[in-house]
Amino acid sequence: MIERNRLLDWLSHGVLWIGLCLIVFPLYIALVASTHTAQTLAQSPLPIWPGDQGWANYRAILGGDGSGFAAQLPVARMLSVSLVMALLISVGKIVISLLSAFAIVYFRFRLRLLCFWAIFVTLMLPVEVRIVPTYQVIADFGLINSYAGLTVPLIASATATFLFRQFFLTVPDELVEAAKVDGASPLRFLWDILLPLSRTSIAALFVIQFIYGWNQYLWPLLVSTDESMYPIVMGIKRMISGGDARIEWNLVMATAMLAMLPPAAVVILMQKWFVKGLVDSEK
């Protein structure tokens, strides 16, 4: 039996509250800044309470009806580009990883283990190492300023393939034999048996890969030369690269708050599945 110590309980809760405040306070300041005018934010000290310009600031960046440099950027278009990019990357990674892990585990062919280790070794090669030849391939195929150019080089995932392979190895052989006796094809076995068993792992990977795709900056910076194909991360960077005299921090903070909403919504809506996929040991 574990005895509870009231002092340790208070101490642990205090540490949690301090950590929560350190995380939430910058977000609160960004939210407050998005509700004031640029002139107010230029003064000292910074306001700590919300202002009355929130609706005007968000309408300016989404509708493009403001007069400043930041208000003229297509923020709504950038948000849609980031959303499409994140969805394509996350879904593409899951589909390709599922199929590759399924082939490695359930099909017997020559050099099967070599193929798996060739995929696994790519974990040691970050995007920066292969970015020049990858860009050359994308340019040769004419995929600059396209969703294919933004997403295809980022779809393959050795980590997801490894996780699905390890999960498939825990599936009892009796399920495979039963599927064969019933005359199920390999794809039918994958669709009717493996996918339902993998739903928590798929949900956890979807959350991770969605955030990974949403936060991409370096690769879109290379393959997006048209403003209409900028993701929101590049849009925020462009807002603060025009010199101190042109930076409208109220609009920048409003854009940053909008940029946080989709990944936060994905995490909140899929929180149960995400946690279960990471810690659940039942197969």
Rank of each mutant, 00 (worst) to 15 (best):
D173P: 04
S185G: 15
P172Q: 08
L190N: 10
A203F: 03
T200Q: 06
L187N: 09
G183E: 11
F168E: 08
S198P: 05
R188D: 05
L194M: 05
V181L: 12
F189N: 05
Q166S: 00
A178L: 07
L190C: 13
V181D: 00
T170Y: 02
L195V: 15
P172N: 08
R165T: 15
A178S: 15
F189A: 00
D192S: 15
S198T: 11
S201A: 15
S185K: 15
L169K: 15
V181H: 01
E177V: 13
S198G: 01
F206H: 05
I193Y: 07
V171L: 04
D182K: 09
A204G: 09
T170Q: 13
P172R: 05
F206G: 01
L175A: 01
T200I: 04
D192T: 15
L169H: 12
L197T: 03
I202Y: 02
F168G: 13
E174M: 00
S198Y: 04
G183A: 11
A179G: 14
F168Y: 15
A204S: 15
P196M: 07
T170D: 06
P172G: 13
T170R: 13
F168L: 13
L195M: 13
F206Y: 00
F189I: 06
K180A: 14
R199L: 13
E174H: 08
R165M: 14
S198M: 05
D173T: 14
K180H: 09
L194E: 00
F189L: 03
L205Q: 02
F167T: 12
D173I: 12
E177S: 04
V176M: 08
R165G: 09
A184M: 09
A179I: 13
L169W: 06
I202W: 01
V181G: 05
F167P: 10
I193Q: 14
V181W: 02
R199N: 07
S198A: 11
A203T: 14
E174I: 01
R188Q: 13
F206N: 02
A204R: 04
L205K: 03
R188G: 07
A179C: 12
L187D: 06
A203N: 03
R199K: 15
Q166H: 08
A184E: 01
G183R: 10
L194I: 06
F168W: 12
L205N: 00
I202R: 04
L187M: 14
L190R: 11
D182G: 10
E174D: 11
T200W: 00
D192N: 14
Q166N: 14
D182N: 11
L205H: 04
P186R: 01
R199G: 06
E174W: 06
A179N: 08
P172C: 13
A203W: 02
I202G: 03
L194T: 01
K180P: 06
I202F: 03
W191M: 10
K180T: 10
W191E: 03
E177W: 04
D173R: 14
V171M: 03
T170K: 13
L194W: 00
K180S: 14
A178F: 03
V171K: 04
D192K: 15
L197H: 06
A179K: 08
S198L: 01
A204D: 01
G183Y: 09
P172T: 14
L195G: 06
L190V: 12
